[in-house]
Design a protein around this nucleic acid. Structure first.
Lengths: 192, 192, 192, 192
DNA sequence: AATGAATGAGGTTTCATTCAT
DNA sequence: GATGAATGAAACCTCATTCAT
């Protein structure tokens, strides 16, 4: 059964308010606080999002969906390395753009994660497996690095960007370091 | 004037208790909790460490000192790239071994940090400047990366190791990725 | 919007408990203590009265309102001196009856006083100005005494009563001293 | 046995430090705080002054002694009313000049007051009795006012001065009010 | 479904006093 | 005598969560 119209409106207001807080650099997502700022009772917020985690995943949903699109594009590249580049760059940029998503994706799968999040995560895992599988077959990626390793390394790069000033000015630099670092050292695959 | 014997003993007990908590994965360092576990009054803990930050820095002190030794060794290498390797590996391993130190070193300089911490930080900055300066003169490091960039990237790698299982089994892999990523792409400086 | 029924009930219980404490001679109004005695969580007390001062002003409210009534009566007297007598006696007796009110009224205007308190204070100031203005025109009050002086002197008299035993038995005596002291020394305005 | 020289020096330093605090408007006299400011251990302060009250009385001692001198002068006046004026003015001014003394003298005799304070208090009571006795015989003081009443009223006047700005500019005004208030209303004793 | 008051555990912090050094 | 570290009760305040309205 779909949400009643007013309930859906409330849910959206909570999300909008939470997004404002996150954008302002506050990832604590205190439900009390969100409720006050959204001009509604705490109870209402709790009804829609029983835990901070639930709200966090809801916030991250858009970014996650967008990432899946990116990952599909990546999986369709002829050039295996290009696929890797697209995939990792997307994983990095989507996190940089949305700290809530960043927390979700850089955290181990939660037992009581929402079904949507779990599904997204599985789907992304599958797409990544495809992209990286191709890359390994093409000998484009340094051997010994698992899918998870690459995932972790991207999250680490996001962290590296966050702890300094002006992340957006440093993204490409750090991304180059990462990509060069994971690319196979075999000369035939070097661009220069 | 040195600490009175009993005071020093208490201080050490606080630190030991806090280290246990950190080792158990709890970085929250709640002072009342530490006091209770150390079997002493809260007041005692607060006298020695007025804030969580003060305790954190005290915990990090040993690792910081050890890192400075490492950095000095790094600065004395003839081969510029070897110096870089030693420096970054030390920065990474010391963090991995001590989460408290990791928090201190991956946080921007605090206005009310202890003098010791500030001094350590300055000293490390100076040594890193030396090591990286040599490396840049030798064209061994990819141009465009600042000292801070390298610092951030190491912290990011630590983060990447932490969010997965069994960090110690993955260290060398991730370190190779990082080192290959920051090394100058110029063929003449490649080892292989 | 009016307070919810249960919230109002709790608020009243806090006030009642606080009044008991004050009546027992304890003006400290420690919020955790009040909460315990009122049999409710501290949070509830803090919700209604975020600070000791807020509670104090709420306690004083009734007395303040009553004083305003007295002051209005005073301002309507034909005989200027009678107005003064009524005003000052009321200011004294209301304080004597309520130590919380006494503290509020003998403290200089607080920047973050409640709006009600500020409004009451302003209103009282206006009425006092009227009463004392008349009295000065009638040459009934010793020249050189400002409105504030009289206010302070009444508060001083309350203090004088408090530091001895059995204040109520001494009120009229002290009040006579005060009134005789502030009355114009000019023989024509003397009653006897 | 007199105090050892260094002990006496410490006692004086405590007193000097406490006087500074009082002069700065802080009557709380926290022994911990005083010790820190005096640059000595708390234990030392506690040795000399086991309680806040003891320190307070020590601080007040000079003012008390001076008051006794004033009271003796008052008791030697030929004109009974002049004696009263001298006595009450002194009681007021000494308090205004020393808040510590003010607290001591406007507080009921303490059970565990120092012997000196008790002796001073008794002595002052005796002198006041003399002065006021004469004044009553001369019909100079309004009947019905006890020695304590006058004492309280002076303390109240001090309070009145304290709660406003610039007490010293208002002293004479308030003192006149008090003196006129307590003087016998009989025309023959009026000055004007 | 929405509300928001109530809860109370649990954190931080202060301070008067004691007592080992 | 002097020291000042230690104590721990008790105040303050916050916040995630519940539940009566």
């Amino acid at each position: 059964m779909p949400l009643r119209a007013d309930a859906a409106r409330n849910r959206d207001r909570v999300l909008a308010t939470a997004r404002l807080a996150v954008a302002a650099g506050d990832l604590s997502l205190q439900l009390n606080d969100i409720a006050r700022r959204a001009g509604m009772g705490v109870g209402t917020v709790y009804r829609h999002f029983p835990t901070r985690r639930a709200l966090l995943e809801a916030l991250a949903d858009d970014a996650f969906t967008a990432l899946l699109d990116d990952a599909r594009v990546a999986s369709q590249q002829h050039d295996a390395w290009t696929g890797v580049e697209i995939l990792l760059r997307a994983l990095l940029l989507r996190q940089l753009a949305d700290p809530a998503f960043s927390e979700v994706i850089s955290t181990r799968p939660d037992l009581d994660a929402s079904e949507r999040t779990t599904a997204h995560r599985d789907e992304f895992g599958k797409l990544a497996r495809t992209v990286l599988g191709h890359a390994r077959q093409a000998n484009a990626v340094r051997p010994g690095l698992t899918d998870d390793d690459l995932h972790h390394l991207v999250c680490g790069t996001v962290f590296a960007l966050r702890i300094g000033d002006e992340p957006s000015e440093r993204v490409e630099r750090y991304l180059q370091v990462l990509l060069d670092g994971i690319r196979s050292a075999a000369p035939t695959h070097r661009k220069r």
